[in-house]
């Protein structure tokens, strides 16, 4: 699996989180191609969740797509496709065309981290109140009012 990916996309970095958990690090430019390849050729068709991470020390934001599979034999395999972007202008392409189920997960990542998903059908607030006008709450420089 890892060899297939690196053969097709020489610029991606693959590392194993553990057995049957493959993390693929790529850039915002190539993430969609990697996603399409993972879905159609490698058989990762079942989106599990999308997470954002704020690496404030490196001034970067990370988006991770966790994709599972319903293909017999690799149900236990989880592919994590990660991309990193600068914190000042976080724009990444949406993956809704690849996995339709990513829509609400991306919407949540947008409101929690302020990451813009280009081409996303609707990026209005999903969980936060309509009148939220502070920083996106899961960014590290946002401090909870109780703390």
């Amino acid at each position: 699996m890892a060899a297939q990916l690196t053969a097709k996309f020489p610029e991606v970095k693959v590392d194993w989180m553990k057995e049957r958990r493959l993390k693929v690090s790529t850039s915002a430019m190539h993430v969609k191609e990697v996603g399409l390849f993972a879905r159609s050729t490698l058989g990762f068709d079942h989106i599990s969740t999308v997470s954002g991470v704020d690496w404030i020390a490196k001034n970067e934001l990370e988006v991770v797509y966790f994709v599972g599979s319903t293909t017999p034999g690799q149900e236990d395999f989880i592919l994590a496709i990660s991309e990193r972007i600068a914190r000042d202008n976080p724009v990444v392409p949406t993956m809704v065309e690849v996995w339709k189920g990513a829509e609400y997960h991306e919407r949540e990542t947008h409101e929690m981290f302020g990451i813009n998903f280009q081409g996303h059908p609707d990026q209005s607030h999903l969980f936060l109140p309509e009148d939220w006008n502070e920083l996106p709450p899961l960014r590290k420089d946002y401090v909870s009012p109780g703390r």
């Binding site: 936060l128 109140p129 502070e134 709450p137 946002y142 909870s144 009012p145 109780g146 703390r147």
Partner: peptide
């Protein structure tokens, strides 16, 4: 009082 969620950004105390 807000309970466990006393330090949450979205909860009333």
């Amino acid at each position: 009082t807000g309970g466990l969620y006393f330090d949450s950004y979205n909860v009333l105390r």
